[in-house]
């Protein structure tokens, strides 16, 4: 009986509920961008000149940035950068630019994102948005949510990701079935593989407070962050619950005077 139980437990533990996997844009990639914050500059004039509202484009960029910044186990932070006049060329920071006549065929490509790199990591990139108003894939023909999905998808390419297998992943090539802007576990795994998060080395659970302090005190990096992280977590868990537990316990003792004691 014990053996059967052990086999059952072990068997349950190796069942795979997963059925998909992320990919990368190049076989040479060994990690993601070598930066804590990757900003995306925007060539607004290239878009407004093609009838695309800068406000709408920036709203889509902000939504996309916010989405990637919620990936739980990733360390890289995205941000919208400066307004620039750079064209569609590999640059660091990557630039988002609108073009007409570049994405001509087929007619359903809304945007393209790409990167170039060295040493196994992306070092430059850009995103170009379809600004051809004669095409059905013209950026303005899409809802705000779909526009944000498109920009987030292309940002995924600039980060180094390739296409995913399942239609619900952000990195799936077709957005037509999507009505919400969300990451799948596959997308999270991809960005995590490229830029894994390590809270034992980074700041206070993502706030970077401890690390920022330690930067001003060379020689004190790393260890203080770990200690303070653990102390803070433990203190939070302990103090926030113990008083509550004792109140509940006191209440129960009044209500149930014969409750067993240990």
């Amino acid at each position: 009986m014990k053996i059967q139980t052990a086999i059952l437990f072990f068997g349950l533990s190796v069942i795979s509920p997963h059925s998909l996997a992320f990919t990368l844009g190049s076989s040479s990639l060994i990690a993601g961008w070598n930066t804590e914050t990757l900003t995306f500059d925007v060539n607004e004039s290239s878009c407004t000149g093609l009838g695309i509202s800068a406000a709408n484009l920036n709203a889509a960029i902000d939504s996309a940035v916010e989405l990637w910044n919620k990936a739980p186990t990733s360390s890289i932070k995205l941000a919208r950068g400066a307004v620039v006049s750079t064209g569609a060329a590999y640059s660091n920071p990557p630039v988002i630019v609108c073009n007409s006549g570049v994405i001509t065929s087929p007619d359903f490509v809304v945007a393209q994102g790409t990167w170039s790199g060295s040493g196994g990591r992306p070092t430059a990139g850009y995103i170009q948005v379809n600004g051809d108003s004669t095409k059905q894939a013209y950026f303005n023909n899409f809802s705000n949510t779909q526009a944000a999905i498109v920009i987030a998808h292309e940002m995924g390419h600039v980060l180094g990701l390739g296409h995913a297998e399942k239609e619900y992943a952000l990195m799936y090539y077709d957005i037509s079935s999507k009505t919400s802007l969300n990451l799948s576990q596959d997308d999270v795994d991809g960005i995590t593989w490229l830029n894994p998060r390590n809270e034992l080395k980074s700041g206070m659970m993502g706030c970077a407070t401890v690390r920022d302090i330690s930067r001003n005190n060379p020689g004190h990096q790393g260890t203080p962050g770990i200690i303070v992280n653990w102390m803070a977590l433990w203190a939070l868990a302990f103090t926030s619950t113990r008083r509550g537990f004792h109140r509940v316990l006191a209440h129960l003792r009044k209500k149930l005077p014969l409750s067993p004691r240990f």
Binding site: A21, T23, L24, G25, S26, S27, L29, I30, A31, P72, T73, S74, S75, S105, P106, F108, V109, G162, H163, A164, E165, Y173, D174, T192, W193, P196, R197, N198, E199, L200, M205, N229, W230, L233, L236, A237, T241
Partner: peptide
């Protein structure tokens, strides 16, 4: 895999990485 204009070659990662996250447990 499909890329909207046909198919393109994409790549699986060839190594291992791990993330470490602290958590509260109730």
């Amino acid at each position: 895999r499909s890329n909207g204009t046909g198919t393109a070659t994409f790549y699986y990662p060839g190594s291992s990485t791990s993330s470490k996250s602290l958590f509260l447990d109730f």
